[in-house]
Structures are given as C-alpha cells and as structure tokens.
Design a protein around this nucleic acid. Structure first.
Ligand code: MN
Ligand code: MN
Ligand code: MN
Ligand code: MN
Lengths: 148, 148
DNA sequence: TGCAAATCTTAGCCTACACTAAGTTTTGGA
DNA sequence: TCCAAAACTTAGTGTAGGCTAAGATTTGCA
C-alpha cells in the first residue's frame, strides 16, 4: 500500500497561512463600502452629471444620515470632496479607485454571463464578489473571456 | 441610423434594483463571520477531534477575547454550544451551515484552480468569494467543472 | 419674491467585531 | 499533590456602518 499524501482539501492549512488569509479578508471587507460608494458616485457623475447624497441614499438603500456619515469617512480618507447642495466629487485617488472598481465589476459580470449565469444574478453576485477577487483571478477570468 | 438600445453596462440600474442588490450584499456580509467560524469549528472537530477557542483565535488571526465575544453571538444565534475547557460544538443548524460553507468553499477552490489560478491564490480568494456567490453561480461553476 | 419642499446635517442610539489588560479557572507535569 | 502555565472570561475601549428624529439650509416654483 503506497503512502498517500493527505488530500489537500481534507487537510488544514497552517495556522499562520490561514490567519493571514482571514486577515486579508478583513482588509477587503473594510474597503468594500468605500469601493461601492466611489463607484456609484462615478457612475452618477457620468450618467447624470452630478452625484447627490439623496440619490446615493436611495440607490444604496440606506438613510441620508448614513450617507452623510459614510461620506465624511471617504472625505477623511481623501477619496471624495463635497460642496453641500452641489453634489459629491471624487479626488484623484477616488477616481482611480472608482475606475478600478468599475473595471473589476464589469469584467466579473461579463465572466459570469459568459459562463451561463442570467444577467440579474450576475449583477447581484458581482456586487459582492468584486471586493474579494484578486488581480490574479481577474486575469484568469479575462483570459477565459478571450478564449471565447 | 437605427435607434440603439443603451449599452446595459453604461446604464444605471433602477434605484430599487440597485438598492436591493446592496441590501442583499449587506446581508451576506453579516453572515460571513458566522460562516467562517462554523466552517473552522467543523474542520477542527473533524481533523483534531475538538475545536478549542485558543486554536480558533490563532487560526482566525484574532485575540482570544474576540473569539469569546463572537462565539457568544454564535451561541445566541443557535449555531454553537460551548463547554468551557472542553471545546466548541456545533448545533444541528451549525452543522448544516458548516457543511454548506465547506461545499461552497471547496467547489470555488476547484473552479478557480481549473481556470488556471495557483492553489494559494485560489484558497485566498475562495475565503472571501464563498460568502458572496449565489447558488445559481455555484451551479454554473459546477457545470463548468463537469464539462472538463 | 417668498415660502414649502427638497436636501443636507446633527444628535443620539444600536450592533458587530476588533483590541489590550487584567482577572479566573482548569489542567498537567515535576 | 500542588502550582505554573494554559485556557478562558471580563472589563473597558474604539471604529464602521446602520437607524430615527429633529433641525438647518437651500432651492425652485406659484
Ligand atoms: Mn460592490
Ligand atoms: Mn460594483
Ligand atoms: Mn470565508
Ligand atoms: Mn471558507
């Protein structure tokens, strides 16, 4: 009987490796709200010329007070600038984050649809997956799309 | 010049549709910690006969105090039972959640690797993606795996 | 042009999930 | 057997991201 290597799927990773995966996850979680906001702000500016807090509240499904608080954090973090009653604006950093978020979002949606998922589910899933997919995985998805 | 339908990718979804996607996302986010804990607890029980809080702290990369607090919530939510100095146990509901989490996790890893991603990145990404992938998407991934 | 409605802010509250520091309890080995 | 180390809990703190209710400011239209 040959000594068989344990099935990797049935074998725990080292504590350190696992801990660092979870730590990276927590990182991504913390960044997710910022990404969704700047992506939405960029979309609104492109499609409707301005990004008003009311509209963001409506589209995020959240109260206006929550938007005020969240935007204050985004401003503190140098992603957004505000002029009350005049909408929100993205800083350079905010525009870069928005562009990256949009690219990830759209690639994911195209990938999921190419695999046979319906459009609405693809959009729904992409909204969450986009924050947890690595650049390496995105590259692999892109390659899949190219190869039909 | 034919009237052309707007490119869906360049067109905002309705406020209601978008809000409900984000709401679903927030749901998934809230469930993620519980899923990771019960999955880990199940793995530890299977691989090491018991799931001690210390070990969970080490593997989650988190303090023991954090584990105490989180486990209290899991217990409150009927997923886990505890006997101090004797490890953690899963309730029926906890076992079901763990099994589902494990299945999603493993399918995702196999899928990512099949697409050409390296194993470590696949594991890293799966740890986050697993909480945001719908059953429909998983079904599609499974089909892809079957078709080689 | 003036005021009602829309927009935005403030105040006060809550939960989840992190942390450190300082206990308490259990266990196992000399 | 007993005591030091390991395991666990408690207390106190902080931030993110939600909420409602109430107040302030601006806008637009009658
Ligand atoms: Mn998103
Ligand atoms: Mn998005
Ligand atoms: Mn996970
Ligand atoms: Mn997992």
């Amino acid at each position: 009987m040959p000594t068989r290597r344990p099935d990797p799927a049935r074998c725990l990773p080292s504590a350190e490796a696992q801990a660092s995966r979870f730590a990276r996850q927590r990182e991504a979680d913390r960044a997710a709200t910022a990404e969704d906001y700047v992506e939405l702000i960029a979309d609104l500016i492109r499609e409707e010329k301005e990004a008003r807090a009311v509209v963001i509240a409506r589209r995020m499904g959240v109260s206006q007070a929550t938007v005020t608080a969240t935007v204050a954090r985004l401003q503190r973090d140098g992603l957004v600038e505000t002029q009350p009653y005049r909408g929100l604006f993205l800083t350079e950093a905010g525009q870069q984050m928005a562009a990256a978020a949009r690219a990830r979002h759209e690639l994911l949606v195209r990938f999921l649809i190419a695999l046979g998922l319906d459009a609405e589910t693809a959009e729904q899933d992409a909204e969450g997956l986009e924050h947890h997919v690595s650049d390496k995985a995105l590259a692999v998805f892109g390659k899949f799309l190219e190869g039909r």
